[in-house]
Every structure is written in C-alpha cells, then in structure tokens.
Design a protein around this nucleic acid. Sequence first.
DNA 1: TTCGCAAACAGAATAGTATTCTGTTAAGAA
DNA 2: TTCTTAACAGAATACTATTCTGTTTGCGAA
Lengths: 203, 203
Amino acid sequence: MSEISILERRFPGRRAGLKREILLQALACFNESGIEATTIDAIKARCETSVGAIYHHFGNKEGILGALFFTALDDQHEHFVHYLERAGTLEEVVFSVVLSYVDWVVKHPDWARFQFQARSSIVKGPHYQELKERNTKTYRELKEKFAAVGSAQKIAPPFELLPSLIIGASENYCRAWLSGRVQTSPKAYGEQLASAAWRSIQG
Amino acid sequence: MSEISILERRFPGRRAGLKREILLQALACFNESGIEATTIDAIKARCETSVGAIYHHFGNKEGILGALFFTALDDQHEHFVHYLERAGTLEEVVFSVVLSYVDWVVKHPDWARFQFQARSSIVKGPHYQELKERNTKTYRELKEKFAAVGSAQKIAPPFELLPSLIIGASENYCRAWLSGRVQTSPKAYGEQLASAAWRSIQG
DNA sequence: TTCGCAAACAGAATAGTATTCTGTTAAGAA
DNA sequence: TTCTTAACAGAATACTATTCTGTTTGCGAA
C-alpha cells in the first residue's frame, strides 16, 4: 500500500508505529465518512487504541488533519520537483506541472481525495500559515524555473493568472474523477490536459 | 444588498421573513467563521430568535446549508442561462460560460465563497442527489447548445473533458480571489480567461 | 543491573454543541 | 368566533471533542 510508504517516510522508526497506524486509519475514516462525520471514537476503535493515545500524539482532531495534509503535500511536492528537474523548455515546464499533478493524484487517490476535503479546514485552522509558506515556496520555484528556461515573454497572460490556467482544468477534472462524476482516469487524459494548458497560456 | 434580493426571490412573502433573516445571518456566520465553527447558538443570537424556530424552518444545520446552497445555485444558473441565450457560435458559447461564471462570482462574492465551502458538505449529505440532478441538467443544456450552434467537430478533446477545460481555470482563479490569495478581480481577467478556455479546447 | 524520568498509553470525567421535546402563541380558514 | 395548523420559545437530552489523572513502558545515566 502506497499509503504506508508515504507515512513511513515522514514518520519513520518503530516508536512511531502507533502514530502511523492512527494516521492510516484516520485517512480511511475521513475518506469513507467525511471529515466532520468521523469521530475520534471511530478512529480509536479502528486502531484498537485509546483517546489518550490519539490526543497524546496529535493534540486534537485538527492535529490529525494537519499531519495527514502536510504528509500528502510533501509527497506531492517531491513528485513535482522530480518532474520539474527534467524540463528544459517552457513547454516542458508546463507539461511537467500538469503531468506530475495528474500522475500523483492517480497514484494516490486516497491521499488526493483527502487533500481536497481537508484544504478548507486547513485554511481556516491554525496551520494556515504553514500552507501559505509552502505555496509561496512552490510558486517561487516555478517562477525561477520559468526564468531559467527563458523566453517567458512568449507567454501572454500575466503571471498572476498562470497557475490557474496551467493547473485549473486538471484539478477540476481530477476532483470530478475522485468523486466519481467521471469515469475515465485523468492519467488517460494527461497529454491532452497538458497540451490544453500550454495552448491556453499562449497569446 | 444583493443577498437579500436573492433570498426574496426564492423565499417570498411576509410569512417567510424570519426564514430569510435566519438564512441571511447564517450566511454571514459561515463566511466569517467557517461552516463547522458556526454554532446554531451563534446564528440564533444574530437573529434574536430561538433554536426552536431555526429547527422548525430547517430541520437541522444541514437544512440551512442546503437552503443556502441551492438558493445560490439557482441564481447562478439563471445568470448562466441568460448569458447562454445570446450565444450564436461555439466560441460565443464558451465565452458565455466563462463570463457568466466570473460575473456571478464577482457580483455575489459572499454567496460564491459559501458555495465553495459548502459543496463538500452537500456532496456527502442528503442533498447529494438534488445537486447531481441539477448538474446533469446544466450539462445537458450545454450539450444541446453545442449541438445547436453546430460545428462541434471543430473541438478536439472528448466531451467528458470539456467542462473542466472551459471552467477549470476560472474556478481556480475565483477561488484564489475569494480567499484573498490574489488581489486582481476575476472580472478584470474575464476576457483573458474566456479566450484561454477557447484556445484550450482547440486541437 | 538498577534507578530516574520522560514519553507513551489508558480510560474516566468534563464541556460544548446539535438535536429533540414539550408547551405556548399567532394566523388564517370555516 | 372557533378551530386547526404553522410559527415560535426554551428547557431537556444526547453526542462528541477535549481534558485530566493515573499507569506503564522504553531508555539513558549511575
């Protein structure tokens, strides 16, 4: 299970065993019943542990959300960076962004589904600042890459619009796929989504 | 206040006065504090009413969410239909979809913000079926319009992808604007978003 | 090996919030 | 006017997150 390896990379070692188990079962609960409908008791039952243990490790429900959310975000970001490295032209950068995103979602649908659900909670809660910093960081990396491959003047829309133009359609389709509204895997449309994004940013 | 006129159209008459007031204050609470953090007591206090009255009109918190959500969806849909009527070519259809969406969001930011927040709750809750039916209806209207203006063969991507390609970027940017991540009004980028959508669906 | 101690756990007690229930008032039909 | 039902009020209930208190376990130092 990819869920386990993602967790082991972020919470390694034998000591963190229960911590990982709680996160794993919480992720399952959140995806099956929704975040709000999932009770601490339900998570407790699935882990055969106690509320004390859960609160010891995470402080509160929000803490569980945060741990899961940033674990997913980190993995997604690594994936993104890995794709971006190989891009040498502006067009390849755009393709990297779209394809890395689509690939990650298809590879980890449970994490992606959770990420969509949890984002609004995170934005309101105490982890907002951390999310903002990571977004700023990714944004900066992308901007630098754009500068590195040069010829950014070939792009018509203002930079403020670019992230939405590049990733908007893919995000929308992935969300539809994760919720079952469409059947075809985003992976099958990867190239089409990427080339559509590329066309969309050209004047 | 546009919030009031939207509510009066859907819940008209003197008898529904308190009902509208509850919805109005609930909308404000949800946008200020978030849906989960808003308590029935807080809404009660702002309306100077009682929990009994609230539960009499809406059954439960979910009922308030549903009433607000579908009120917003209806208004948005009317707006959409009105724009779509005037489109005579395929390109104009795409522009109508994007511009009607962007205009509505900018015109009713509080309703739009709430809509984004509430969608996941609705999808999980008992109103899911109703939302699904409305989406199907809109989807069908769009498909018929596409057929009516003909020349749909000029479009490269499969129909399954089209909604995401057309509205994805705009939705993404509007969401960013409503949460304060970007400053420039989507209205200012309306034409650019529309033409980007149009380029993106061409082979 | 043992001692000290902090982290890891368990489960009862508490607090806050949604929901229900019972009763009262007001409005419209007959 | 009377009768019926919707509209409202507020206390009582139930559920769930969180806290608190106590116990156990792992680990470094003596």
